[in-house]
């Protein structure tokens, strides 16, 4: 996953970073989360090609409305595809059905081919909607919205801590890597590399635990009681309602399309 990050890219956007005002950026976080989940569940239930294509078009429409930069987002999507391509390519060979043609004596079935296309369309449509609707939120806002949606408080705390410290710890790991590099360490396929990476992970854990002890001390000192204080109140606006109606209509159309083409 590391290679999806450029040298100057952060893992997560920091809180307080300037958010571009876009069609989706102005919507209530809770609405966006619920919309993404509903859309995801419905699309996973679809199986006909026209409906899945329509779902992907809806996702691409959301991407256009979200103001995310096109190239990096589609690149990340393609990264995911590169992981599953192996499984998808195998499917036509392993699924029994009418032969399309054969490669080195192995029959390629139409059924397997369409199944692979179906999985690829579903996976891309859902993940794209998730990234555009929820992934454009500030990570801290995501935590607050999940809290408002009745996710257990402890889990939200855990999420907020993770969000807060991912970038801190990544910078620490990069410092350790830099220290290894100036001492002439070059990763290769050998025991020395694996031992060094093992020590790197071990050192990161030791530092992480020591850091968490300091954090706990600092929190106790400020009288932490386990409550989550919201930085902003969530309020539904007219735009939220319009978006909810529009997306519900689109999802309803997807279901109709599915029922017709089945």
């Amino acid at each position: 996953m590391g290679h999806t990050l450029g040298p100057n890219e952060k893992t997560l956007t920091e809180s307080g970073a300037i958010q571009v005002a876009t069609l989706i950026g102005g919507l209530d976080a809770r609405v966006r989360i619920i919309a993404a989940v509903c859309f995801g569940v419905v699309v996973v239930g679809l199986s006909s090609l026209p409906a899945l294509l329509a779902a992907l078009i809806v996702s691409l429409g959301l991407l256009a409305a979200s103001g995310l930069r096109l190239r990096p987002t589609l690149k990340r999507m393609a990264m995911m595809d590169s992981f599953i391509i192996f499984m998808l390519v195998l499917l036509p060979f392993t699924m029994p059905g009418d032969a399309m043609f054969s490669v080195w004596g192995f029959p390629v079935s139409w059924q397997g081919f369409w199944r692979a296309v179906e999985i690829a369309l579903t996976a891309n449509a859902v993940i794209l909607a998730l990234m555009t609707l929820v992934g454009t939120l500030e990570p801290v806002t995501l935590g607050h919205a999940l809290h408002k949606l009745r996710v257990p408080e402890t889990l939200v705390h855990l999420l907020m801590f993770t969000i807060r410290y991912i970038e801190v710890l990544r910078e620490e790991s990069l410092r350790l890597r830099a220290a290894m590099k100036v001492r002439g360490f070059r990763p290769a396929t050998n025991f020395h590399t694996y031992r060094s990476f093992g020590y790197l992970v071990g050192m990161m854990l030791v530092r992480a635990v020591e850091r968490s002890e300091r954090i706990l001390g600092a929190m106790k000192c400020r009288g932490f009681s386990g409550r989550i204080y919201l930085l902003q109140e969530f309020a539904l606006s007219g735009a939220d309602r319009r978006f909810a109606v529009l997306l519900s209509a689109l999802v309803f159309m997807l279901i109709c399309l599915e029922l017709q083409c089945r």
């Binding site: 801590f161 710890l169 790197l200 992970v201 992480a208």
Partner: peptide, 16 residues
């Protein structure tokens, strides 16, 4: 705090 920071370190370890 310990669980949160460790959760973040495992996220970072998965970038290695």
């Amino acid at each position: 705090p310990a669980a949160g920071v460790l959760s973040a370190s495992f996220f970072v370890a998965s970038l290695v």
